[in-house]
Structure formats: C-alpha cells, structure tokens
C-alpha cells in the first residue's frame, strides 16, 4: 500500500492531468477500499480527470470514492467530490444513492441512513469496515450532543444490537454505563459551563491601525 501511495503521489506530481494515469488512480482507490486506508487528495485528482474526460468515467469507482469521502466526515471531502461530478454521473444509480445517504447522514437522520443502507447493501460490497467508519463519525457527533443517553436510543442511531453496541462502545473507551444509560466522557461541549467569547485582537491589527497615525511633535 505504501509503495502504491508513493507511486501515485509521484504520478500526480508529474502528470496530474494525464488521462493515462487513471488506471493507477483507480487501482489506488480499490486498494484504499480493501485496506481501510484513505487518500482524499488522490481521489479528487481521479474525479478531476473524469471531469476532463467524461467518457472515461467509471461509475463504480466514483461511488467508492464518494463512500470513502463520506466515511471521512466531518471533513469537507464529500462535498468537494460532489462539486466535480457532472449531471449524468450524479444521476447514475449507485452514485445517486450514495448522495442521498450523505443527505441523511449530514442532516442527523441516522435512522433513515441505516434503513437505506440495509436496502442497498450491494453498494458497500468491497468496502469492508466502512459501516464502522460511519458509526465512528456518528458517535463523535452524538458524544458532542449528549452527556447521557439511553442505550435504546443509541442502539437505533448506530443500528447495532445491544451486545454489538456494548462491544463497539468498549472499543472506543466508553464504558460508563448505569441502568442502561451511557455517560460520555466530559468534553467542552457537554458540560454546563458558560461559553465566553473573548475579544480577538491580533497585534497586527493594532500595528496596522497605529501605523496610520504619525506622531506630531
């Protein structure tokens, strides 16, 4: 994988807009899917070549790139990918479905997201572990929203059976459970502390303003 990553990096430095490197970029996408690695910039370069040479578009690769970008939330990778897709690509079946997943996921409709995913399992075939990547993103959002949450609510949000949920939480160091209620580790956001917005006055601004005035004797 490292070797491939280096190779792709070299190609992007010397021949970023050359359609002949698509084969390598696509191979790299497949490898990322299988091995749980991620290189958003290389994947964007691949989409850009599809933008320049639409006839070379491989829709299955596009949907894989989108899924990987979706799993990289909260980064803006997914929307960055979307800006590069032509109308025709956006309408193509696996791609359109993945875009609708993004809508659900980013609007906090985790339950809808899982429902749609269960009905279209074939789309995530070839991406082992991607479901857990989505869960990790969800858990991060949930832990910033909740201080304590009932396991039954969490189960629905993460689409896990009770046993799997406990295992998943353990894996992420969340073990503080009493009476089926999970308490998240405390963060800035889930504690009753008033937030203060201080004044931000960079030195540069002060200097800039003062340098406009000459001092008269």
């Amino acid at each position: 994988m490292e070797e491939l990553s280096q190779q792709v990096n070299d190609l992007l430095q010397s021949r970023r807009y050359d359609p002949d490197i698509l084969i390598d970029l696509e191979r790299y996408v497949e490898a990322q899917c299988l091995e749980g690695a991620y290189d958003g910039d290389a994947n964007l370069a691949c989409l850009k070549l599809y933008q320049f040479y639409p006839e070379k578009t491989n829709f299955s690769i596009v949907s894989k790139i989108l899924l990987k970008a979706l799993a990289a939330l909260p980064s803006s990778d997914f929307i960055s990918c979307l800006y590069l897709l032509g109308e025709k690509t956006q309408r193509e079946v696996p791609v359109a479905t993945v875009i609708s997943w993004a809508d659900a996921l980013e609007s906090g409709n985790f339950v809808d997201f899982w429902n749609s995913l269960q009905n279209n399992k074939d789309i995530i075939k070839g991406l082992p572990g991607i479901e857990d990547s989505f869960r990790e993103f969800m858990l991060a959002v949930i832990s910033r929203t909740y201080f304590r949450i009932h396991l039954s609510v969490l189960q629905k949000l993460l689409c896990l059976s009770q046993d799997d949920l406990i295992r998943f939480l353990n894996k992420h160091g969340m073990t503080n459970i009493t009476n089926d209620i999970l308490q998240f580790p405390s963060t800035e956001e889930n504690q009753p502390r008033p937030k203060t917005i201080g004044e931000q006055l960079p030195l540069r601004k002060v200097l800039e303003s003062l340098s406009n005035y000459s001092i008269h004797s």
Binding site: Q191, I197, G198
Partner: peptide
C-alpha cells in the same frame, strides 16, 4: 447538550 431526555442550554458570555 442533552442529558438523557432534557436539553440544557448554556449562556454565552461576550466580553
């Protein structure tokens, strides 16, 4: 933040 079923809202102080 949400504490189980209760939403708790904090003040924001602006200096």
């Amino acid at each position: 933040f949400v504490d189980n079923d209760v939403v708790r809202v904090m003040d924001t102080k602006t200096e």
